Simulated assay, not measured.
Amino acid sequence: MFKIKLFPKIMAIPFLAVGLVILLFLGASTALSGGTPIINTDGYCFPVGGEYSYCDTWLAPRDGGERRHYGCDVFAKRGTYLYAIYDGVISKKYSGGLGGLSIWINTDDGKRYYYTHLNGFAPGIEKGVKVKAGQVVGYMGNSGNARTTPCHLHFGVKVNGTWVNPYPILKQIENAQERQI
C-alpha cells in the first residue's frame, strides 16, 4: 500500500505559494504595461496606456477651496505606462512638493505638458532628453499630495505660458485614436 508522508505535503505549500506569487506578478506586470501606444495622424499619443478613466475637473476646488485644479486627473492601476504625448524634450524632472515625482515635456510649438504624481521615471528620462510621442516616460502612481488617493496622472498643459484645460485635448486624442482602430 502507498503511504504519503506528512513532510512532502508540508513542503508543497511553500512551493505552491511561490508559484502563485510568480503567476500573479507576471500577470500584473503584463496587465499594467499598457500595451502598444497608438500615435494618431497628428502625431499625438494618449499619455496613459491600458485601461483608464478621467473626467473634466478643470478649476475644481482643492484643499477646501484654497486653490484650483489646473489639470485633468487620469486614473489607472499603479505602474501603468505613461507615454510622451508628443515629440519634445524633458525640460524638468523632479521630486517633491505637491506633485511628488514629476516631469515637464516641452514641444517646439510652445506647449508644455506636465505629468505629476508618478510612481517612477522610465529609464533614461532626464532633463534635456528628447522624447518621441508614445515613448514611455514614467509610471502611474500617487506621489506627493496624492499619496492618500487612488493612483492617477495629474496631466496639465501650458500654451505659451498659460494653463489651459487639458480635457478637450485628451478627448480629441482619444477620439482620433478610436477612429484609427
Rank of each mutant, 00 (worst) to 15 (best):
I4E: 12
K5G: 06
L6M: 14
L6A: 13
K9S: 08
I10V: 08
I10R: 00
M11L: 15
I13W: 02
I13M: 04
I13V: 10
A17L: 15
A17V: 15
A17E: 01
V18L: 09
G19V: 03
L20H: 05
L20K: 01
V21I: 13
I22V: 04
L23V: 13
F25I: 08
L26C: 10
S29G: 11
G34F: 01
G34K: 03
G34D: 04
G35H: 03
G35K: 01
T36N: 12
N40W: 05
T41I: 09
T41M: 14
G43V: 02
Y44E: 15
C45Q: 07
V48L: 01
V48M: 04
E51I: 09
Y52A: 08
D56M: 03
T57Q: 14
T57I: 06
W58Y: 08
W58A: 05
L59Q: 11
L59R: 13
A60W: 11
P61Y: 07
D63C: 12
G64R: 10
R68K: 13
H69R: 13
G71K: 02
C72L: 10
D73H: 05
R78L: 12
R78N: 10
G79W: 02
I85C: 04
D87S: 00
D87P: 05
S95G: 13
G96W: 07
G100Q: 12
L101Q: 12
L101N: 13
I105V: 15
I105N: 08
N106C: 10
N106L: 10
T107Q: 09
T107K: 09
T107E: 09
D108T: 06
D108A: 04
D109Y: 04
K111L: 14
Y114C: 15
N119S: 11
N119I: 03
F121Q: 06
P123C: 07
I125W: 00
I125F: 02
E126S: 06
V131K: 04
K132Q: 11
A133V: 06
G134M: 07
V136I: 01
Y139E: 07
Y139Q: 02
G141K: 09
S143P: 00
N145K: 08
R147K: 14
T148Y: 12
T148V: 09
L153T: 00
L153S: 01
H154F: 02
G156M: 09
G156I: 11
G156R: 05
V157T: 10
V159Q: 13
N160H: 10
G161K: 07
G161E: 01
T162Q: 14
T162P: 06
W163T: 03
W163I: 02
W163P: 05
V164A: 08
V164T: 11
P166E: 11
P166I: 11
Y167V: 00
Y167N: 08
Q172R: 14
Q172K: 14
N175S: 14
Q177F: 00
Q177K: 08
Q180F: 05
Q180T: 07
